[in-house]
Design a protein around this nucleic acid. Structure first.
Lengths: 228, 228
DNA sequence: TCGAGCGAGCTTGCATACTAGTACGCAGTG
DNA sequence: CACTGCGTACTAGTATGCAAGCTCGCTCGA
């Protein structure tokens, strides 16, 4: 019983593959919001049984990307203003706290990694940028010493990813993002926790600001929110 | 298809019942850290099949209360200093952000609810206090307008709950907690976001500070953390 | 006596069968 | 024509069967 007790968070099991496939399909609106999903249909389409499908759907439910209604069906959630606001709140809270710690603890090794990432961002196209962006924020979170920060942020991010990927990139979008990343890193490099938090908070407000334009283009993707 | 799309987060399904039962057993160390769990054994003991057991265990894995090792077994995690620190970090980040918003948005109705809760705390025994404590923090989080704050906090809290419930309550513990709750609420009531955050942050540092004493009493509950 | 190898008995992961419950169309009635 | 009531065809929830893999103890050999 002197074993390592490591459970691989996201290995290469069937469930994880199904999860990633479905998540990708949902955030790109290949599976449009509101669409009904059938465990049987998905199982047939992906060539596996219902069991791993169910487990993957359970994970997606945690991210509020699907809603499971007993004896009725599973649905791709429509975009909800409040769900997006919740996700943004969580990301801001966690990542800003993390970046404060990062600014205090950061070492040369990490700074170099961030620097290299930023350099790559300079000359990246939209497709490559997404991965670099994720990596940048992950490194930043990990530098806080709490890897959980990125784990949870990434999960809350399902909502935000969908917004970002459904929104048409405006001209100058990439330049803007890279510039903001620079600001954050510069503050971290000079051990300025307050500055880093401020810069990051500004940076993170970007995604929710895309909502109105998206809503105009795809009103059918949105939940009709009735004022309580 | 004009239905409500509400998926009850924690209804009264078999899976939820199993989840709550196991979580209770783990946080009270009725199932001691390190113990091996068998899906079959649990299924037999709880009178259900393996399927809902598996789903409940998957939820507990998210809280790092169990570790699932393929083809080997499922284990109650030992207390890990870093896991506790991670949980405390998450709770602090989320709840402090929430309380800032709460201080700005709070209404009379909520203040009254908090007040009533505090009054009840004054005359509660240890057992009743736990529920009131949870409720106090939940109301506080909900007042921010982001119910997700408490949802995630509560989840990260598995680690902290276990510490709290395994630690022997020191004399004056309850009085101390209630006093700190008072401080937080007072700051919220006077719309003092900075003060509320400060008071709450202090309050939340309590649980991790219980670790050393617990480690002395139950060294076998702890993961031996090797310095990297 | 000690060590290597193999097999039995576990484990979880995945596939399949069955149960309970909802939505919706269609027949029958007022 | 409008409406009620039932039956069919779906759904997710649960139970069970099967496959792949790891651990550990027993056996056999030196």
């Amino acid at each position: 019983m002197s074993l390592q007790l490591i459970d691989r968070g996201s290995g290469q099991g069937t469930r994880d593959r199904v999860y990633l496939t479905l998540r990708e399909a949902i955030t790109t609106a290949q599976l449009v919001p509101g669409r009904r999903l059938s465990e049987n249909e998905l199982a047939g389409r992906l060539g596996v049984s219902r069991t791993p499908i169910r487990e993957a759907l359970a994970l997606l439910r945690e991210e509020r990307l699907v809603a499971i209604v007993p004896q009725l069906g599973t649905f791709v959630t429509r975009v909800s203003t409040s769900a997006v606001a919740d996700a943004a709140f969580v990301r801001e809270a966690l990542e800003c706290s993390a970046v404060r710690l990062a600014a205090e603890h950061v070492d040369a090794r990490t700074l170099q990694e961030l620097h290299a990432n930023l350099a790559a961002q300079e000359s990246a196209d939209v497709a490559a940028f997404d991965a670099l962006d994720d990596d940048f924020h992950r490194v930043l979170c990990d530098a806080s010493g709490h890897t959980i920060a990125w784990t949870l942020t990434h999960r809350a991010n399902g909502q935000l990813d969908r917004i970002r990927r459904l929104s048409l990139p405006e001209p100058g979008y990439l330049r803007e993002m890279v510039a903001e990343h620079h600001d954050v890193m510069a503050a971290v490099a000079r051990r300025d926790a307050d500055g880093a938090e401020r810069a990051l908070r500004h940076h993170l407000r970007m995604v929710p600001s895309l909502l109105p334009a998206l809503r105009e283009r795809h009103p059918d993707y949105f939940e009709e929110e009735e004022g309580a």
